[in-house]
Design a protein around this nucleic acid. Structure first.
Lengths: 94, 94
DNA sequence: TTTTTTTACGACACACGTAACAATG
DNA sequence: CATTGTTACGTGTGTCGTAAAAAAA
């Protein structure tokens, strides 16, 4: 499980398009395709129904989307928690 | 930000030792050391106070630990949500 | 000396971009 | 023909394990 995978998954789900997601993420379409494949392999379920000209979420994709967003938010929260400590922190334990 | 980094961080924090964390995670100590370094570099803050014979959390490390656990749990929740859909799911949209 | 963390080195896996393919409208 | 998603290939970055180094009890 990789946060980058989830980020890509959410982008494709929101854009309903691999190519638009690629544009948004500023990577090549092939990278998006492979990343989603990797996540689907990891979860053991297809996340999208690829019909040549439009992309649709599977049931699994739909059920997973919210928790994927939550996981990304949780990761952001980690960064926020670290930043929240005093500007340039060591803890001298005085 | 990488979930593997967080996993390693939590292990070291719980064991208060790089070497015991390495044993628990079944990797070499050097890998643990480098992974924690990478996370600290990513967050821009030291997470541990290394005194040769014992490891202690910095303020940042302490403030970050809970959210790190939460992020790992959120990632697990993604997997659970995917598994929760019917045994071997496609969505035939009938 | 034993135990701890860090650094150097070589090997392997993963992800990227470019480019070529396949398929639909 | 234009657009969309996938696959092939070469390249670079990251991570691993082993091994050596540095420091303290």
């Amino acid at each position: 499980m990789d946060l980058r995978h989830l980020h890509t998954f959410v982008a494709v789900a929101e854009e309903r398009s691999f190519s638009r997601a690629a544009t948004r993420l500023r990577v090549a379409q092939s990278a998006v395709s492979r990343t989603v494949q990797a996540l689907e392999r990891d979860l053991g379920r297809p996340l999208f129904e690829r019909s040549r000209h439009h992309v649709e979420l599977t049931k699994t994709g739909l059920a997973t989307l919210d928790s994927a967003r939550a996981a990304l938010a949780a990761a952001e929260a980690v960064r926020a928690a670290a930043r929240q400590t005093c500007p340039c922190a060591l803890s001298p334990t005085p």
